[in-house]
Amino acid sequence: MAGAEGGVEADNTNAIITRIEHKSRKIETLLKQYKPVEALKTALEGTYAILVGDERCKTAHWLVVHRAIMAIKDVDGMLSSLDPEYHDILMKYLYRGLATGDRPTCDHFLRIHEKLTEKAGLGCILRYLTDTVNIV
């Protein structure tokens, strides 16, 4: 199975990496235009399609999302304009950030975590804890 489909999988991975690179450029542009919320939305969009890829894709995508989250200054403003459908995926990335142990990342992510929990409820955390399929 691995032999025959290895080529297809590699193609798929490359396609995903290309998409992430494209996303990254778009986010940089939005950040230059002082649109951090738009940038975060772009970062979170279509995440589930990217998570089907391998570890390399996930790491590449994490770096993009991390960049976008770190650029958020007004947390309340961001949460009020973010669609509820993105709450679950944002929570997953917040936990990934908290797991890095990097001081500035953790400080910032913990602040967002508190606000997001207030807004999205404990169910959102539960869905992070129990999801064994879409690991970010």
Binding site: A120, L122, G123, C124, R127
Partner: peptide
Amino acid sequence: HNSMIYFVDDVGPSPLAQNVVLRDL
């Protein structure tokens, strides 16, 4: 246990499934 509830209509070969996301536990 992921704070979701599922509703399935027309249980059979082509079921129609919906889920509702809960805010709480």
